[in-house]
Design a binder for these strands. Structure first.
Lengths: 267, 267
DNA sequence: AAGTGGTCTAGACCACGGG
DNA sequence: CCGTGGTCTAGACCACTTG
């Protein structure tokens, strides 16, 4: 492999464009032009500061931008490395599959970690979504999914504890929640409502997903129904925005047209 | 309205948590606790620096975090203001409606601005998506949609110029693209594929949507078909991630199960 | 002119990883 | 120990808004 010539990098300090932005662009173009893919190491921030003739905090902010674009990964004590982005596709918004099932379909190797599994008293928000009385006992399940070892999303699920008394005895590592509901409780999911938005991670989210606080998440809240108006499950899922795509294919179906918007809260 | 007492704000400099993060949290809690909604003005960054006993750059970064969470808006020369978030719901992933039609259904007042409308030579990427020869002439349409005056999304559409020779003569401000296709060209959309992901705005995106470069966008790429395998339209839409939710309701339909994933590129 | 956020600097100390 | 990124400071100049 040829040596990389970082010394050609420069910016125009006269331009009315922030230096950190110019630096960020220059580095991005350099990475593209030289087709740096795998784990190539960038010069240290101090060295970059010299190269560009700016201060270290300016370089720090520039590299921060690249990290938010998921072009590089900073590792304290080691350096900054170019990353090879791999997107995990979820075929989701159109099917009634659970996320676990969508992962299975994708064929990618994934694992499930149970972060928490317990019964709790439902908050008024959760109770409302499950159509229960506030304070009812609910099963709370928090799981982290990894693909090829890397954290991809963290999901929290809520189900009525009365309706599923022994749910926590099942093994959530090897089975999907949907399959347990269907096989053990004879309650197939036949309808689901979902709402998607972009949020910032909490400190805990960031820690679990191994991302900086600056990186946006895709938050998908969903309610699953077994038959009309019978709520089975409420869930909140947070995906790493840099690693996930959601896809859907919709075909014309006269029965599903025009009966959609009921109560979309304008928060 | 009672006077706000900002002086109670403080952080613990001994903790191993970044000061800018502590400041950011303290401000967020203060806003919540005092239920500051509309355009309440925060103390100046210099004043905040005094209050917390930290330097101005640290305050600047803390407030930056709040801005990325869309809790405040910074205006140069004026100050920093609490914002009242309003989310625009799109009922979208499930229906074959265009975004304009989804907006109409929501009942919110919106406007359309045509940024560009012209014929161009298709790049190989666009040509591939429209199933045309590279270099073919395509109609390119770039529009900005505002809701209640605020920019919400910017969309770019590509259609075969050969198939729609006089498309650019239509009025895109008062009619949706889908309705023109259906009424003038007798080509109803009966199928659509969509892919969603989170991206950073380009400098131009940020300018059009009036957002900082740090704010994430929801990017929705779509292909619309008139009848099986007849591609009509390829589009790329970028939504402000802080102002938009996407919702869907999916019901059980044996015909749509299990025939989904064809070619999801693992970039 | 005064107040505000946008940006930058030069230098500093820390925590972490690796020899 | 050294090199790395993470963070912070004190002070500065600029551009923009308002009076």
């Amino acid at each position: 492999m040829a040596e990389l010539d970082w010394s050609q990098l420069s910016i125009d300090k006269g331009k009315p464009i922030p230096r950190y932005y110019q630096v960020s662009e220059a580095l991005e173009k350099f990475i593209e032009r030289n087709d740096l893919a795998s784990g190539v190491k960038l010069p240290s921030e101090e060295h970059l500061a010299e190269l560009f003739g700016v201060s270290r905090p300016t370089i720090n902010k520039a590299v921060q931008l690249l990290m938010e674009k998921s072009l590089v990964r900073k590792v304290r004590g080691k350096g900054t490395f170019v990353i090879q982005k791999k997107l995990v596709p979820f075929v989701f918004m159109q099917d009634l599959t659970s996320l676990g099932e969508s992962l299975k379909k994708s064929g990618l190797p994934f694992t499930t970690e149970v972060i928490e599994a317990k019964k709790i008293q439902a908050s008024s928000f959760i109770a409302h979504n499950l159509m229960l009385e506030p304070g009812s006992l609910v099963v709370y399940l928090k799981r982290l999914r990894r693909v090829e070892g890397e954290p991809i999303f963290v999901g929290e699920s809520y189900l009525s504890a009365k309706r599923f008394p022994d749910l926590l005895k099942h093994d959530f590592v090897s089975q999907t929640l949907y399959s347990i509901l269907e096989k053990k409780y004879r309650l197939p999911i036949v309808k689901a409502k979902r709402m998607l938005r972009v949020v910032k991670p909490s400190a805990e989210d960031a820690s679990l997903l191994e991302i900086p606080l600056s990186q946006p998440l895709i938050k998908l809240d969903g309610t699953a129904y077994s038959w009309e108006e019978s709520v089975v499950l409420y869930s909140e899922t947070k995906f790493r925005g840099d690693r996930v795509t959601l896809t859907s294919t919709v075909s014309y179906n006269p029965r599903t047209i025009g009966k959609s918007d009921e109560k979309h809260r304008l928060v």
